[in-house]
Design a protein around this nucleic acid. Sequence first.
DNA 1: CGTTTCTTTGAATCCGGTCAAGGTCCGTGG
DNA 2: CCACGGACCTTGACCGGATTCAAAGAAACG
Lengths: 222, 222
Amino acid sequence: MTAVSQILPSNAPTSPAAPTSPIDDLGTIGVRMTFGPGEEIYVQDEDADMIYRVVRGAVRTSRLLSDGRRQVGDFYYPGDFIGLEAGPTHRFSAEALGVCEIQVIRKAALKVCGEEGVRIERMIWSGTVRELQRTQEHLLLLGRKSACEKVASFLLDMARRFRGQVAELPMGRQDMADYLGLTIETVSRMVTQLQADGLVRFQGCRRFEVRNPAGLAHLVEA
Amino acid sequence: MTAVSQILPSNAPTSPAAPTSPIDDLGTIGVRMTFGPGEEIYVQDEDADMIYRVVRGAVRTSRLLSDGRRQVGDFYYPGDFIGLEAGPTHRFSAEALGVCEIQVIRKAALKVCGEEGVRIERMIWSGTVRELQRTQEHLLLLGRKSACEKVASFLLDMARRFRGQVAELPMGRQDMADYLGLTIETVSRMVTQLQADGLVRFQGCRRFEVRNPAGLAHLVEA
DNA sequence: CGTTTCTTTGAATCCGGTCAAGGTCCGTGG
DNA sequence: CCACGGACCTTGACCGGATTCAAAGAAACG
């Protein structure tokens, strides 16, 4: 199901200015795998005996309703753990957005790694708490924000990762829509509107910069 | 801010058929406190050095936007931990729905309780994972479900707590609305509609029973 | 350079929100 | 015991923001 070490050609958006947060080393535990665009890292309802960490690239988690509606849980970047939510099985699927490299660790392996295992378990704990916090933030966004506020929140959040430089979105409009609980058309319209209002500027549909941080922040409304 | 051991008269809905899930004992750690309807157990942005566990009654967590919009995070019942999401400060407030009794435990106290502390820390860990799962379920509901499906999901979830008997809602329509990302009017209309369709039956606005479990489940659409 | 996929834009529709009344439930006090 | 008052819930009419449907435009890819 999940391809082991599949090498893809260099068509990947190499994200030249990617904001590489320094990734604490995970030591020698686990295996590195490479996934191509759209490939599944793990699947909804599958057993959850591994945990995963993004080394390079970006990942989305998503969940499908039986009639095809989809909710994107979150997007993950280098240094982030994924698959933490799991009880016995995964509630969401995880898919690579572009080419990405993932470190895969068997949960059971941590028990027998002493020192190193304990250190990683601590990282997992704090990762889980952060995940819970982000998810709660996401709740607020989905439950109580307008389309315009949703898109503004999302862009501001993305822009933060790039520290004011030009930001590059690793996902398309459909992924944004499914994250924000909107349709792709609405996302597109709001992006257009935010640009018309001079709050952001796009160069192509995946690169943008914030032109008016204060104005954008005002829309986000903590 | 939070009243210690306030005794309220017996106007509380004593919930005679309340589904008392057996609560594992927390031993002698921590203090029990009683809160009256609407009282704050902890407040958004407050320091988070305690954890809390519902002993009796029901609790909602909620978060306020600066313009008054409110999102209810979740509802908690006897045995549930609350306040787990916290980094240094609480992201949500927690308020008592009716009269309720809460066991309050200073986090730092767990470190020095040996055996007992470790046992509770494990309960907290599994509580946090369950919380994350519930929150993700909530995401799906807020992002991708119609008003009717939202209300149906909610009622089905509540009904499950009462194992098919007549269920008693500890919260009012406004709380349901803020949990579901709807207005109070829409919640009311959907309840009326579900009743008209013969899926549920209300006796008063807080007691109901499921009349057609399959039909209701069909609306929920996993 | 043609084809496919993704994005944007427009027009019409509809679901849920808003505004405004009326109803119900309860507790209080005459 | 009943009248009153307040809080909460329900219902109706209308409105508007987001979706839907459709088509044109732009990017990515072979």
